[in-house]
Design a protein around this nucleic acid. Sequence first.
DNA 1: ACAAACTTTGACTCCTCGGTCAAGACCGCG
DNA 2: CGCGGTCTTGACCGAGGAGTCAAAGTTTGT
Lengths: 223, 223
Amino acid sequence: MTSEQVEPGRVERKRGRRIQEILRTAAELFGERGYDGANLEDVAQRLDVTKGSLYYYFASKDELVTAAIETLGKEWTERLERLSEARDGSPADRLRALIREHVDIAVREYPGVLRLYLVPRNWPEPQRQRIEALRREHNALFRRVVEEGVASGDFTVASVETTLRCMHAAMSQAPLWCSHKKGAALERALDELADALMMLVGVWPESGEPGAGAVRAPRPSRS
Amino acid sequence: MTSEQVEPGRVERKRGRRIQEILRTAAELFGERGYDGANLEDVAQRLDVTKGSLYYYFASKDELVTAAIETLGKEWTERLERLSEARDGSPADRLRALIREHVDIAVREYPGVLRLYLVPRNWPEPQRQRIEALRREHNALFRRVVEEGVASGDFTVASVETTLRCMHAAMSQAPLWCSHKKGAALERALDELADALMMLVGVWPESGEPGAGAVRAPRPSRS
DNA sequence: ACAAACTTTGACTCCTCGGTCAAGACCGCG
DNA sequence: CGCGGTCTTGACCGAGGAGTCAAAGTTTGT
């Protein structure tokens, strides 16, 4: 009786945490193996429970995966938004920071999850749409900075949209080629990636200061 | 008796053509849906036969898909190689031509097939390896031109490898964002993509001549 | 301690899909 | 025509995975 209308409530909170746990694990696995490749049995196993238990919280595989995309996507977007609200610094610095944050999240924190972005093929239509929407949200944050840079003359691009797409494509693939690196090597790889991507907007890495020990290709004088 | 040791032979040739047909269709479907997502029933249906018939030519799904990757990959590589043998023109022109050829093949001729490249996840190990090898072959062709350009001072890059990866990533995604376009719009999209990617090596589109009507973002004077 | 609510289990069903195969259709040739 | 080789069919099997559920286990409130 007493628990007819409690706010959060201990039980509710516990339930919420459990759901978060499940979502995280599920996102990880679905990111790694794709919609068809990942099965609930394995998700359950990673959580040390049985499949049936998942169905207590989610009505279907679809519902689970939808929720997973939603939750992680939101967190991701928030982090990017927080970063992109800081309006100090040159467009170049800000774009670079965004790029770094994006790949950092992808490569370090949610191994596999960014792959959600890749080829929405296979995903059932509603999920595909949601992933696409997420991509657009993130893209919008990048677009803002790029457009500012273009307007201020800091950046040069042939087409903003195309540039953004290339940037996004490269960032999406990054986890694939970085996942095995760590420590300083990882750091260097991510820096190189950022350097390369900045060139898409016409900003070359400062040839004067080789940065964090970045390995550079022979750079002939162009005077 | 008469057909104990004939060269090609009418029947043989017919068989060969059939196999090619199957491979092409299979590659298309596997490219679209991935290894798990595509089933043989559907491949068969696209060919207006039944599943059992495929097993007359191939022992298993794996064998089919392996052969498909092999065949298409070979054709693809050959086309790129042919193009990259032409040694006339500036590195910029040659790189641009390579990029165009690569995305042309991807977007126009094998809709979906380039996606083989994307996230080798899900593919059984042997296939994954083969796809990776293919990627490396293609990459080598691009690397040659990029390195030449760097050596001659036409290009500037922070890291050749990273630049190549970004280029490849963008080209791989291209079919996803271009597949619905056609005619002049497609042409423009591909040109823009090439423009954008050339910036990765420090070559900006000539602002003087807007090329094939490319839509350009505001391009402030930079002195 | 007891009951009620909440959570987990594991066995079960159903269905899809890779793979098999005997039977027959088709095709070219004497 | 009819014979031999080539190809296709459709019914079938078995594995694996989504989804169900009654029963048992755990937690919470009184």
